[in-house]
């Protein structure tokens, strides 16, 4: 971490936000899917696909914004498969999600060989430009803003937008209705399948964007295994946040803070093994979840395929 000339707290907060962004995107994606009643274990795979295609898009066009669009489309495409399996074919959504995770890991490392002729990781590609100097010249918070990237702003904006959609718009009401009681929603003329397709595909698009924020920000390359469980952490954050956008945001920030803190803590010279700092966020989550949050309530019809016209 580059914290030369930065107060440690600023560096810590900035890296917390940077580390949280992929989680926030994926957790929001998970929210859309689960709120509409489709369990999405495949977020991990969708992040992987997004991370790969973001780099591929930037590699092909030299334009990172096109890379981001690639990521969103590829994430949406793989999510469409999950949607088709879960909604039309009434698949076991866990099986479908697990299949997508395996598929994503395999196809990206396969494409790494076929498209990049490389193993393990891609070449570095054109990074996403962020006006660091201009941001730093802003008074008071300039130094902090200079350490961020565009994804941080997009992610936080999307949390607000998602919250607004869920609780202030007719579409959000429909999504929640479909997730809670699809038959009632169907009776009222809401297209259950349509809403679910929309939400699952949106969840893939968001996770794809999350993948882009992982590969096309600091490192500017795709490495096998770079997602390493972030999709599962996002699922945990979503449930931990009790299936609410802001809840998920806070949960993602806690994970990221602990992650950022361990890098800082190693420089403090405290007599704890590094593994201890690494394990802290997970221990804290369990304590908070079991001690304070207790039972989280998923949407009533989460994971249950809807059959039209069934009694």
């Amino acid at each position: 971490m580059n914290n030369t000339g930065l107060p440690i707290i600023v560096a810590l907060l900035a890296s917390t936000l940077r580390l949280a962004t992929p989680l926030i995107f994926a957790a929001l994606g998970g929210l859309f899917s689960e709120k509409s009643g489709v369990v999405n274990i495949g977020l991990e795979g969708m992040l992987t696909i997004g991370a790969f295609f973001a780099v591929y898009g930037s590699f092909k066009t030299n334009n990172p914004w096109i890379g981001i669009i690639f990521a969103v489309i590829s994430g949406a495409a793989i999510a469409a498969v999950h949607a088709f399996l879960s909604i039309h074919l009434k698949a076991d959504q866990t099986i479908s999600g697990v299949a997508i995770n395996i598929f994503a890991a395999a196809i990206t490392s396969y494409l790494l060989m076929v498209l990049f002729n490389r193993q393990g990781q891609t070449d570095g590609v054109t990074p996403l430009y962020y006006p660091k100097e201009a941001m730093q010249s802003i008074p008071v918070i300039g130094k902090f803003l200079g350490e961020l990237n565009w994804y941080v702003f997009i992610a936080i904006a999307l949390v607000i937008v998602t919250n607004y959609i869920f609780y202030k718009t007719p579409l959000g009401l429909r999504i929640r209705a479909v997730g809670e009681h699809p038959k009632a929603a169907d009776t009222l003329g809401i297209g259950v399948y349509g809403i679910r397709y929309l939400c699952v595909i949106l969840s893939g698009a968001l996770a794809g964007l999350g993948g882009a924020s992982l590969s096309l920000s600091n490192t500017n390359l795709f490495r096998e295994g770079m997602v390493s469980g972030k999709g599962f952490i996002a699922i945990a954050a979503m449930i931990f946040g009790n299936y609410k956008p802001f809840g998920a945001l806070w949960a993602c920030l806690i994970f990221a803070l602990a992650d950022a803190f361990q890098i800082v803590a190693q420089g403090l010279g405290w007599p704890f093994p590094t593994e201890f700092y690494s394990a802290i966020p997970f221990i804290i989550t369990m304590i908070v979840l079991s001690g304070f949050v207790g039972k989280t309530v998923p949407p009533a019809a989460d994971g249950i395929p809807y059959e039209k016209g069934e009694k």
């Binding site: 469980g229 093994p273 394990a279 997970f282 369990m286 979840l289 079991s290």
Partner: peptide, 30 residues
């Protein structure tokens, strides 16, 4: 925890995976 508090087993077992990972590494490298 699932039975007594009702906290979600998926979240907790994901957390336990990471705790196992780091705790194992501490023991193996320490």
């Amino acid at each position: 925890l699932k039975a007594k508090v009702g906290s979600n087993e998926v979240v907790n077992s994901i957390m336990m995976n990471y705790i196992a990972l780091y705790f194992s590494n501490y023991l193996i490298m320490g």
